[in-house]
Nucleic acid binder design. Structure first.
Length: 1177
RNA sequence: GCUCGGAUGGUGGAAUUGGUAGACACGUUGGACUUAAAAUCCAAUGAACAUUAGUUCGUGCGGGUUCAAGUCCCGCUCCGAGUACCA
């Protein structure tokens, strides 16, 4: 009886599902084990064989663990919010939920075909409101939390508010936005509610902030850093630009250190840990503050003659004076300052602020307005005042003057005059000059504070906020041009062009914190605005980029390393390096110098040790329809959370899934999308009154929101009161084994860890890490086939003779044109021809070889058009026709060919291909066979290289598919799918079946007689298989256990084994890999009625795993390899009881040994009992 | 550039602590059965020389340690993955 895999597999798939065979229960007395596959997004393309490798591996492991007596949780579900469904909705108008549902249905069918032991009772979908209710719930909890650095965990925002109202924010250590103006408890309590909310927003773990985001115009949405690959979007490869937008962000940076530390406690592949470590990017160093020096007065403007207090060239004296003046204002100045300060007139005023070499009383930089209050002294110096006004006007400032009496007597009049003036003045777009000269300092982050004496310049990122302030008039134009040029460059261009060195001098100088020497400040785009402080102290002798920059712009390079040559390149090496030329750091090594430099910086208050992370807060808003809506409405511009008992907030209906004309996200099209705070429900937009009914958030959450916590939901998938019950969370803890691709290293796998830590901090989950052990499965790749198109060609007469041809001939050519459609759309050439055509014509052929190459090339090209010519000449016409042949067409296109039309020898089935492509094409090959080019790459619909698992299951069965995918090679390795090799595994399944069907006509046959003890061959085979298979599964070396099964079945077949005692354990051994056939064999072993399975039938999955018994493998002899000088020559069977000396004696006594020695005496004989004998001659 | 991983027959891949390199398959060749094909079974299969024994060379390249190296050490080449002006 032949094995009928279709019948058998169908029977057991149905049985497992109907009986709910794989339900895991919290009440089980067994130890728990949680096996999980990475959340799939079921796309329309369905499942292909490139995909289920990880599922198969985890299913084998889950089944194995059940045999081992564990209570195994092995659930499955879907990340069902996905971009493809939304894109399909945009094209067709079909609701993404409908598309998703269809896709999932198909996906589920495919999964069922492969016979997975998933616990479908726990299935979840992220797009199900009952699921995303809890995603929204977690979001609101994040909003209601802040990160307390003192307790090093997230806490409820109420604990922060309590501290604010008790003692202000002076003693708070929190991870927050760095805008910490200090306030006291009293201040806090006096703040308006809105002000308080604004401050709290800077502390919340999810917050609304205007951030520079990666905007992808083609997708119409923002992207997180990990969704961008090489400067273009991961999906679709569209360009990405930087754009400022108000977005929800996740304060993942609060967890940077814990995310790093946690890596030590989890069993993940090292490369993946490395990826996360790199992404978090911790670096230790120091923040150093450089004070910006005021500019030296410019001579051309003759400043010395006109100022009040120019005092020679000493600007710092001016500064001192300005400070002094601020401290002791005149009464009039005080009165006016009271009216101007704190943006009371809508703009910011500064007092006694340095402009060029002057200290005007009040300045508004954004409007370029100067207000002077003149005391009695001004009556005597009208001329000087006029000259001063003139110079200031030259700088673009409008100067208005008031007398002391005016201010004191009629302050209201003065103020209204100023505000009128302000209204008329345009907003200044010119770079304000010299703002805050006294107070400005530039903070830099450095990992090498020990090299501080090597600083010869500083570089700011072009986007640095101080650039505009410090640039001098002379450099203004150059700097502005540079800033604009860099802003225009896309991220991609900037990345592509890392070699060219660009930058501009700002004209400003900073003061070295120790030497007090001036350090020129440059801007350059090699400094990134997003990392550290966006500014660096440049140490050209120690950093190659600084070195190159200095060389390029002729900036001096100071060597501060002892005995190191820096004439060619910078010395970045830390090892064995000693500092020189550096005052108090001289002769110290890097480590000592670093510490000492930090100490010194702290002492003078210009720096401190600091740890910096590369990790950024992640943007959490997407301008899409198909995602979780935020449970957020806006009151007075401030976000408010909808109370948790009213969740979920479900997606509204829209007529189109595109952004609105105004550029709002698709939810902007919804008519019913406002929050009624009285009735706590979503109501129509036209009811919005901003009193009780408010607008709802229009963005939706990103794809990773739902997938960051789904592993908890499986533990208690149907709980409507909590995301999962405390008991379930406590029982299942975390995922014991997680199998998935490595491409999620900086996305899903990081966010999941972040959310888990957060949930733990707040007491919602008991574990710190979501996935204890993780394995990356490699992908099974497709072998695409390509042909080359060299475009089309057209037919016409040669121009010169076209007038003198007969009507008959003309008609024939036009009939040719008609026949070929005038133009043959595409000519496809075979692989070897392509290789040949790609080579260029040799311009001046000299050798015979080169001549024949050109000839042959020409000939080949001619064959492309020969049949047209033939047809033409057969008619007997003598004229030439011109075929615009591919010779003129330089472009070559690579065209994917469906792999179904290509055979194993890479030959194309031309007829099927032509039929499929539909266009008028022509295939041209050198020989009769048309060869295609093969490439190994990811399976994808567009490359027509998808192999469908359903087809494999239909042809060979699911068991064969499972075994074969495992047999292909190590789990972690990517490998191409090659259907040819499947026959070996298929043959194995058939042999396995035969082993149990040795009765007449291949009927089922086993004997209950015990296996022959004396020989013990069968038991030996069985037990060595048990041992090896168990080891292999424990090491996730599934490929080798498949070969072990093959060896086992081959041996047992040779032994003509049909003992129940052997065949029963064998079925259990194989059942994780090939569950259908194993279950069938098991049922037959038990004599079960297959047509009507008894209600109490205990499937094979309930059976304990066979126990390995050493006694069956004990050998009395060993086949020793006898080697001479390390090379094995022959073998000898010797008893294992022999001692070292006895073995040596017996080996030396052997005839063969003497034959090899050929009379010589060996120098030495190495004997390792049980292993090897080596004779050294 | 940096970090990590890898390189073994015609192919996918085995090889435990350094101890018989190439398990198990695919493919190929030859054979059996068959009218034929499919299916199945048997044999050979790292390379070269010799075809009886056997000899020599063989795990990317060059060195080294060792009685013994695919495995350990040093230097290099190539391939793959991640990351990229991270101060």
């Amino acid at each position: 009886m032949k094995y009928q895999h279709q019948e058998v597999e169908k029977r057991w798939q149905k049985f497992w599902q109907e009986r709910g065979t794989f339900h895991a229960s919290q009440e089980s007395k067994k130890p728990k084990y949680y096996v999980l596959d990475m959340f799939p997004y079921p796309s329309g393309a369905g499942l292909h064989v490139g995909h289920p490798l990880g599922y198969i591996a985890s299913d084998i492991y889950a089944r194995y663990k059940r045999h081992e007596g564990f209570n195994v949780l092995h659930p499955q579900g879907y990340d069902s919010f996905g971009l493809p469904a939304e894109q399909y909705a945009i094209q067709t108008g079909q609701h993404p939920a409908v598309t998703t549902k269809t896709n999932i249905k198909r996906y589920r069918e495919q999964l069922d075909n492969i016979g997975f032991s998933f616990d479908w009772g726990r299935e979840v979908r992220t797009s199900d409101p009952l699921y995303y209710k809890w995603t929204q719930w977690i979001f609101t909890e994040l909003f209601n939390s802040w990160y307390n650095k003192k307790s090093d965990k997230a806490e409820h925002i109420d604990t922060l508010i309590a501290q604010f109202s008790a003692e202000g924010n002076l003693h708070i250590e929190a991870v927050c936005d760095e805008d910490g103006a200090s306030f006291s408890a009293e201040d806090w309590n006096n703040f308006t509610h809105k002000q308080q909310q604004e401050i709290l927003l800077q502390y919340r773990l999810t917050y609304l902030a205007e951030t520079e985001v990666n905007w992808c115009p083609a997708l119409g949405t923002v992207l997180a850093n990990d969704e961008i690959v090489n400067g273009v979007s991961e999906r679709g490869g569209h360009p990405v630009v930087r754009k400022k937008m108000t977005q929800w962000s996740m304060r993942i940076t609060a967890y940077a250190q814990r995310l790093l530390d946690g890596l030590n406690d989890i069993d993940w592949p090292q490369p993946l840990k490395d990826t996360q470590e790199n992404w978090i990017g911790k670096s230790k160093g120091a923040t150093v503050e450089f004070r910006v020096l005021p500019p030296t007065p410019s001579k051309e403007r003759g400043a010395s003659g006109a100022g009040y207090l120019t005092g020679g060239n000493n600007s710092s004296m001016l500064l001192e004076k300005a400070k002094e003046m601020r401290k002791s204002p005149t009464p009039a100045e005080s009165i006016l300052w009271d009216q101007l300060k704190s943006k009371q007139l809508g703009v910011k005023f500064r007092r006694q602020h340095l402009i060029d070499d002057f200290i005007p009383d009040f300045v508004c930089l954004s409007k370029k307005l100067i207000i002077e209050v003149d005391g009695p002294i001004h009556d005597q110096q009208i001329e000087e005042d006029a000259s001063r006004t003139e110079i200031l006007s030259g700088l673009g400032y409008k100067v208005i003057r008031f007398k002391n009496e005016e201010v004191i007597g009629n302050i209201d009049g003065v103020v209204s005059k100023i505000s009128q003036e302000l209204k008329q003045l345009p907003d200044s777009e010119v770079l304000p000059l010299g703002e805050d000269l006294g107070g400005d300092s530039i903070a830099v982050f450095t990992t090498r504070p020990d090299t501080i004496f090597g600083v010869t310049f500083m570089t700011l990122a072009p986007e640095h906020e101080l650039v505009a302030k410090i640039t001098t008039l002379e450099q203004k134009e150059a700097v502005e041009a540079y800033v604009q040029a860099t802003a225009k460059r896309s991220e991609r261009e900037r990345m592509a062009d890392v070699k060219s060195i660009t930058g501009v001098f700002t004209g400003a100088y900073a003061e070295h914190p120790f030497t007090k020497e001036p350090v020129p400040i440059w801007i350059g785009d090699y400094v990134l605005a997003g990392y550290g402080t966006g500014a660096v102290m440049a140490v050209p002798c120690g950093d190659q980029r600084d070195y190159d920059f200095a060389k390029h712009f002729d900036i001096p390079i100071k060597n501060i390393f002892k005995g190191v040559d820096i004439s060619e390149e910078a010395h970045a090496e830390k090892h064995n390096t000693y500092i020189a030329n550096s005052d108090f750091l001289n002769d110290l090594d890097v480590k000592e110098a670093t510490q000492k430099a930090i100490d010194a910086l702290e002492e003078i208050g210009q720096g401190y040790g600091k740890i910096n992370y590369r990790l950024r807060d992640t943007v959490f808003s997407r301008q899409r329809y198909w995602g979780e809506p935020f449970p957020v409405y806006y009151v007075d511009g401030m976000p408010q959370m909808i109370e948790q008992q009213h969740l979920p907030i479900t997606l509204p209906e829209v007529e189109k899934y595109l952004p609105t004309e105004e550029g709002e996200p698709p939810l902007g099209r919804a008519d019913v999308w406002a929050w009624d705070t009285t009735n706590n429900k979503v109501v129509a937009n036209d009811k919005i009154d901003h009193k009780t009914i408010f607008p709802l958030e229009l963005n939706t959450m990103p794809g990773w929101a739902g997938s960051s916590w789904y592993f908890f939901r499986y533990m208690d998938a149907h709980n409507d009161a909590e995301f999962a019950s405390a008991e379930a969370l406590k029982y299942w803890e975390n995922v014991d084994l997680y199998i998935g691709g490595s491409e999620h290293g900086t996305g899903h796998l990081l966010y999941s860890r972040f959310w888990t830590k957060f949930l733990k901090d707040r007491g919602f989950a008991p574990v710190e890490e979501p996935f204890k052990k993780l394995i990356n499965q490699g992908m099974i790749l497709g072998e695409s086939a390509y042909t080359y198109s060299i475009g089309g060609f057209s037919i016409d007469f040669d121009h010169d003779i076209s007038k003198n041809i007969s009507e008959e001939e003309r008609q024939f050519v036009s009939s040719l044109k008609k026949k070929y459609g005038g133009i043959i759309k595409n000519v496809y050439v075979s692989k070897e021809l392509m290789v040949f055509l790609r080579k260029p014509v040799i311009q001046h052929p000299k050798t015979e070889e080169e001549l024949s190459f050109n000839e042959r090339r020409k000939e080949l090209l001619n064959t492309l058009i020969l049949d047209i010519h033939n047809e033409y000449s057969q008619k007997g016409f003598k004229n030439k026709i011109v075929v615009l042949a591919p010779d003129q067409l330089r472009k070559i296109y690579k065209i994917p060919v469906p792999i179904d039309y290509v055979d194993s020898k890479n030959r194309l089935d031309g007829k099927s291909f032509e039929r499929w492509i539909k266009n008028d094409i022509r295939l041209i090959a050198e020989t009769k066979e048309f060869f295609v080019h093969r490439e190994v790459e990811k399976m994808s619909k567009s490359k027509y290289n998808v192999v469908n698992p359903d087809d494999i299951c239909a042809a060979y069965g699911a068991d064969t598919l499972r075994l074969y995918e495992m047999f292909l090679g190590p789990l972690e390795q990517a490998k191409p799918w090659n259907t040819a090799g499947i026959s070996g595994v298929y043959g194995f399944i058939k042999k396995l079946w035969k082993l149990y069907h040795t009765g007449p006509d291949g009927s089922f046959y086993v004997t209950d007689s015990p296996p022959s003890e004396g020989l013990g061959e069968e038991l030996k085979t069985l037990h060595k298989t048990i041992k090896k298979v168990k080891e292999d599964i424990d090491n996730f070396s599934f490929n080798t256990s498949v070969s072990t099964f093959m060896i086992c079945v081959n041996e047992l077949t040779a032994q003509k084994c049909n003992n129940r005692e052997i065949l029963e354990p064998l079925a259990i051994l194989i059942s994780p890999y090939a569950p259908h056939i194993a279950e069938e064999l098991w049922a037959r072993l038990r004599g079960v009625d297959l047509a009507d399975l008894p209600a109490d039938y205990q499937g094979i999955s309930t059976q304990p795993f066979p126990v390995f018994e050493e006694k069956h493998l004990i050998e009395s002899t060993k086949t020793y390899p006898i080697s001479f000088n390390g090379k094995m020559k022959f073998t000898m069977d010797l008893s294992l009881d022999l001692s070292k000396d006895q073995i040596e004696e017996m080996v030396m006594a052997d005839e063969k040994t003497q034959q090899f020695l050929n009379g010589r005496t060996p120098k030495k004989v190495i004997v390792v009992p049980g292993k090897i004998v080596n004779i050294v001659g």
